[in-house]
Design a binder for these strands. Structure first.
Lengths: 170, 170
DNA sequence: TTCTGACATGTCAAAACTAGAAGGTCCAGC
DNA sequence: GCTGGACCTTCTAGTTTTGACATGTCAGAA
């Protein structure tokens, strides 16, 4: 159900086409809320049918530019203030940890070493991204920076944890 | 697709019924890989049909106790060693952060304060859980302890981040 | 004896998500 | 002029997940 709110959120910043939104999902939202093209177009159609967004303009190549409607903005605000976020931590990575006991200790350590490497890479990618962006003090910059900082801290935490964990085995 | 591996993993520890497994999903796996009753029973039937698990015993009230078969153990090991975990970070909590700009600063800070509280609670719950368990040095203890430590560190990280983030607004 | 709550499984419809095919337009550079 | 790549949408067919309904057994308390 959060996909519709993600779309409303992006459209609250500025009007955009399905294609534009897809690009946003492939870049800034990729690690937070991945969504495929078919999902996005389907949901946009539903949102438009429900009057939460409107087709503000039509461009070349059948491009439809959607804009958020008052009802959509109200729904977005409602979601942000009235509904509780659920800690939806379905994590493939951590699930595996529970079952490392079926492997030999060196295999288990290899898995954790892989996590260290993954975390290092993730951290480095975000660091480069942060460097490449010209941060202002508008809303997008402030909250984008906060989200990115989360990613940096998360990867650092996971790296240290995986290193510690490898030391716990045998 | 990880649900089947979660089931295989749990059955690799000891035989269990669907009901037993459901309890495990509601407790230790709840934060890592939530699954509903219908999903569990459906998947168990499929796994049994595929010969990855067997019905080892039948008890009162139609209870069927499943045990992992050789093929299931092989599949579990294959999953752990040969397939890459995907960073499946779909996060409701973080998604909201991107759109806090549509709220008033005090509302945004309230959201982050809520995350601080959530993280403190999560940390406390895990701390109590860790205290209540009599840790040995068997596999289950070692890897259970490692997974739990992840939770502790994660909540601590998120708490500090949310406090820092609240200070970034305005 | 009756009732309650834990034990135990099965099935279904709907929603969400995945993966990809299919079709078409516009523009810049060769 | 033509061609490749970016732009842009729609549709299909499948799997996974959610949430609820339906059904029944057993042990112990009232």
């Amino acid at each position: 159900m959060s996909l519709r709110h993600a779309l409303l959120g992006l459209l609250s910043e500025r009007p955009a086409s399905g294609y534009d939104l897809l690009k946003r999902f492939e870049t800034s939202l990729a690690t937070v809320w991945p969504a495929t093209q078919s999902q996005i177009y389907t949901e946009l159609t539903k949102l438009a049918a429900g009057g939460l967004i409107t087709v503000a303009a039509e461009g070349p190549r059948g491009r439809k530019e959607y804009a958020i409607a008052d009802g959509g903005l109200a729904e977005l605000r409602h979601w942000l203030t009235e509904t509780k976020p659920q800690r939806n931590t379905r994590s493939d990575i951590l699930l595996r940890v529970f079952f490392l006991g079926v492997l030999k200790p060196e295999q288990a350590r290899a898995y954790l070493a892989g996590l260290v490497e993954m975390s290092e890479q993730g951290h480095e990618e975000l660091r480069l991204l942060a460097e490449s962006i010209d941060w202002g003090d508008d809303d997008l910059s402030v909250y984008g920076r906060i989200a990115l900082e989360y990613g940096l801290r998360f990867n650092a935490m996971r790296r240290e944890w995986a290193e510690w964990a490898a030391g716990q085995i045998r």
